[in-house]
Amino acid sequence: MILLENVSFGYGDDSSTVRDISFHIERGEFAAILGANGAGKTTTAKLIDGLLKPTKGRVLINGLDTAKTRVSERARHVGYLFQNPDRQICKNTVREEIAFGLTAVWQNAGEDAIARRVDEVLESFGFSGDEEPFSLSRGERQRVALASVIAIRPEIMILDEPTTGLDYRECTHIMDTIKTMNEEQKTTVVMVCHDMEVVASYATRALVMAGGHLLGDGPVKTIFRDQELLKRASLLPPQIVELALRLGPGFENADTVEEMTEAVSARAKRKGAGV
């Protein structure tokens, strides 16, 4: 579905580059790109969407080379949620905002079909549709931006730090919606994220970057336990993983609070049974 082959990219000032990275993401995967600031995460996300064209190598989305197809055409299949929702929002009501992306992408669909889809999305996000997007809170604006992206039913969702500046409740709202799409509609998700707790809770695969290189690629559980790799990428695992590592055998799979609770219960039961 997403294939990067020996991809390199450099900005004019060479401040942030991607150097010879290759990976393949299958349909329905939930991958997180991790790394410190300037590691090349956002550049990689933009390369996947075709907003940036590789200087070397090639990026294929569903077999199509991003260098040869227009971003606006690919928008039918690929949705991109930016860190700052204010760059996406440009209409006076939430209803118009959701319809705006749809009219650009569903050019052959009739007005009725678009209106029906807008109503569906409004209902699922709990918006009335008459709200003014710019008067909403940061978290609500991010939800409006997400609703606009989800409305087009993309096969691939690229999220650039979707939870930055959101409180826990808003963060959970956003991520739960994305996870539901991933699980129910097999939407492929590629997420750039600094929040390791969010990565541990939602992503299944992690791609670790540093200095424009891809240092590691594997299941989140394996990556978070590779302390050498995390150190090279200047990353820290989530606190719950650190705790699990210190507790040792029996806690290998405890990456979330739920998993830790299960592991502790299992340990208590074994002790109770005198094992």
Binding site: L51, V71, S72, R76, I89, C90, N92, A104
Partner: peptide, 28 residues
């Protein structure tokens, strides 16, 4: 860039069309 990613044809080669599409962006 964000609007292009949403399907707005800012990557068109028609300059006049591009200018027309820029007007709604004055709001954000």
């Amino acid at each position: 860039e964000a609007q292009t990613a949403r399907g707005v044809e800012f990557d068109t080669k028609n300059g006049l069309k591009k200018i027309g599409m820029m007007l709604p962006l004055c709001v954000p």
